[in-house]
Design a binder for these strands. Structure first.
Lengths: 222, 222
DNA sequence: TTCTGTACTGTTATTTGGTACAGTACACCC
DNA sequence: GGGTGTACTGTACCAAATAACAGTACAGAA
């Protein structure tokens, strides 16, 4: 299924907003007026292109005969849902389909900052930050962080070598990064990373990156 | 606001079903055809009656210019939402409209047991159960609890006398109930309630009831 | 008894709206 | 260089749809 062009997306959005505001779809003339076309044929052409790409259905001979398709997914699934990310397949972006375990119906805007994905915490390394084993944390995607923030770090598992997400408190001083667990038990040791040896080395993959910052959590059991 | 007649209800239902099925409202002719009228004026008369009674709005000069009113609740129907309960008006059930501060888009089934409503925690009395000030807890509505469970208890505030929700760990031994905060600081003292004097006393209001059991939480900030 | 509201039929005027045809211009791909 | 797709303008026709006017019939309330 091909994608919509910029203009076609604008027009589809206008149809959506008209449906929301007025309760019925716009006419060709409504669309032409909205976008400053002097002829309704312009609108018609766009509608036929959008229909051909499968985003709407045009009902011939019916005034305002525009039916939105694939809106169930948009309205029910993705607008108010967040992907739960488990393990991360090599070379894929975090939120790639393959990494999504499931979608949970939670409004992303509930978190501050807004959550872009979720991750289920395993283990007790952040216990003293009140993040417990089994909690589902909301992560706001960004590739940098301030000192002292809790970040979702992506790095290979020491044994399996597979990329995984871990939560740690982030500190940076010059080229030295410290990822600190929030558990004072001796088993939990801060991780020190020196960026210096990696500089200019385009072959070697940086073994660590920030996927985002901690934005809150859900604890699904009483 | 007067009620609709049988026929008007049928016609309003037809408009709803057309909107659901086709994505846009019917014309006067669609309605006439559906109900076997030989003239579209019949449909028009009904529409004007339904509009006069406030159930729809007719947009003059617009084909299919029928707008459903009072449909918001029906459409987004709180299916994947939970009410956030603040203070509780005297003599109302917990989840009564008046007690609902807002609706949050969270799937009730995310919690175990299923959450029926949410409550925002104020204060640090449950700190050692890892429930912090500002957390939003999910509550599964039930009027009893097992020993050691965390419950949402409803009782009058000691100063204002207004009913409010507090979280406490619940213990019962015979007629004696203990509501225990999870904070070992000396300011937080267990509350002892003796049910015995209340028995058979129908005049006196029981000053405490269980609204439900703790089913998990959301922490909306990083 | 009259008035008001519901529930229609029948006809007609007028506007709204869909759609076809003929162009122009630009960008990208092979 | 030709083909295809996008992004429009401009004209025109005609079916779709609204809306107004004139009725009929019945039922319940004042």
């Amino acid at each position: 299924m091909s994608d919509l062009t910029q203009r076609q997306t604008e027009i589809l959005d206008f149809i959506r907003s008209q449906l929301r505001d007025t309760g019925f779809p716009p006419t060709r003339e409504d669309i032409a007026r909205q976008f400053g076309f002097s002829s309704k044929t312009g609108a018609q052409d766009h509608l036929m292109a959008i229909a051909r790409k499968g985003f709407i259905e045009l009902v011939p001979g019916n005034a305002r005969g525009i039916r939105l398709l694939k809106e169930d997914e948009l309205l029910l699934s993705h607008q108010f849902e967040l992907p739960l990310i488990g393990s991360i397949a090599a070379g894929t972006p975090i939120t790639a389909e393959t990494n999504v375990d499931t979608w949970l119906r939670i409004d992303p805007e509930l978190f501050h900052p807004r959550a872009d994905f979720l991750h289920r915490v395993a283990g007790h390394s952040m216990k003293e930050a009140n993040i417990l084993d089994g909690d589902i944390v909301g992560i706001h995607a960004q590739d940098d962080a301030d000192n002292g923030q809790i970040v979702a770090a992506v790095m290979p598992h020491p044994k399996t070598g597979e990329d995984e997400i871990t939560l740690k408190r982030y500190f940076r001083r010059g080229k030295k990064i410290t990822l600190k667990p929030e558990n004072s038990a001796p088993a939990y040791k801060p991780l020190e990373i020196d960026l210096a040896p990696l500089e200019g080395d385009s072959q070697e993959q940086t073994p660590f990156r920030i996927a985002g910052v901690y934005a809150g959590l859900i604890r699904p059991r009483g």
